[in-house]
């Protein structure tokens, strides 16, 4: 004789996801940096007339064109490296994960819900960046959708494995936040926030191409131009995913 008061029966995982969604919406800081800031960045650059001119030196793209994939990568980086690790570290520190181990649901469900929510916000933000760029500044849509999607997913996997590694290795939330901030800057630089990768001097560009987001930035720009991205760029990002992902899985602690 079960006298359940709730009218809807949900699975434990769905209940965790629903609760975490509500909590995610109570984080205005994260929502701003992930959803609003990347499009805002694109709009500010787009307001500068010179940046809207196509240039032969940039592969026929204008600066604003190049900033479409860059803004997408900014959203990913801020979500996975800046916003998510402190949430997970706070959960571990407060014993939320430990406590979940005493219920029929796995603590991994909570981590999965958080990753899903942050990734979901990135996808929304990316759609916003691409749409606003297209409508306001006439930036091109991806010429090769499969290539763009592949580079996009690899970049997403790369930043989330970096975020997981920070979570795994940081002893507490304070140190984790500090590490996140330090790691975010080189990631944003290699994504091309200060200078698009295609506009970097040769030696610098060669080095940046070996970083996870440098490779991804090149691959996404190639896909935007209509080519399937070069295997080398995809491979660089994929290798980072495998290595960083494996280390973070091995070093992760629940308590």
């Amino acid at each position: 004789m079960s006298t359940t008061t709730t009218t809807t029966t949900t699975t434990p995982a769905a209940a965790v996801l629903r609760t975490e969604t509500r909590l995610f919406r109570r984080e205005p800081g994260s929502l701003f940096w992930i959803l609003v800031f990347p499009t805002g960045l694109l709009c500010i650059l787009g307001a500068i007339p010179g940046f809207r001119l196509d240039k032969a030196g940039l592969g026929g793209f204008s600066v604003v064109d190049l900033f479409v994939p860059v803004s997408v990568l900014v959203s990913m980086t801020l979500a996975a490296v800046q916003a998510m690790p402190p949430v997970l570290l706070a959960y571990r520190e407060a014993g939320v994960l430990r406590r979940l181990r005493t219920t029929p649901v796995q603590p991994a469900t909570l981590l999965g819900a958080q990753a899903l929510l942050h990734a979901g916000a990135v996808v929304l933000s990316s759609a916003l960046v691409v749409s606003v760029g297209r409508l306001a500044f006439g930036t091109p849509l991806p010429g090769s959708w499969p290539g763009y999607a592949l580079a996009y997913l690899l970049a997403l996997a790369a930043v989330f494995s970096i975020g997981s590694l920070i979570t795994a290795l940081s002893p507490n939330t304070r140190i984790g936040s500090a590490v996140s901030t330090v790691v975010v800057f080189p990631l944003l630089f290699t994504a091309g926030v200060w200078l698009p990768v295609q506009a970097m001097p040769h030696l610098l560009r060669d080095i940046v191409d070996l970083t996870p987001l440098g490779g991804a930035s090149e691959a996404m720009t190639e896909a935007m131009a209509g080519h399937f991205p070069a295997g080398s760029h995809l491979l660089v990002t994929a290798l980072w995913v495998v290595v960083v992902g494996a280390v973070s899985v091995r070093t992760f602690r629940w308590e």
């Binding site: 709730t6 949900t10 209940a15 609760t19 407060a94 939320v96 430990r98």
Partner: peptide
């Protein structure tokens, strides 16, 4: 558990609803 906290912004109602949903016959 001794000294175990919850998600900081979860309300009492949400915590009770969530924990009910985790068990087969709450």
């Amino acid at each position: 558990l001794q000294e175990s906290r919850l998600q900081p912004k979860i309300t009492v109602r949400e915590a009770l609803e969530l924990w009910s949903a985790l068990h087969p016959d709450p």
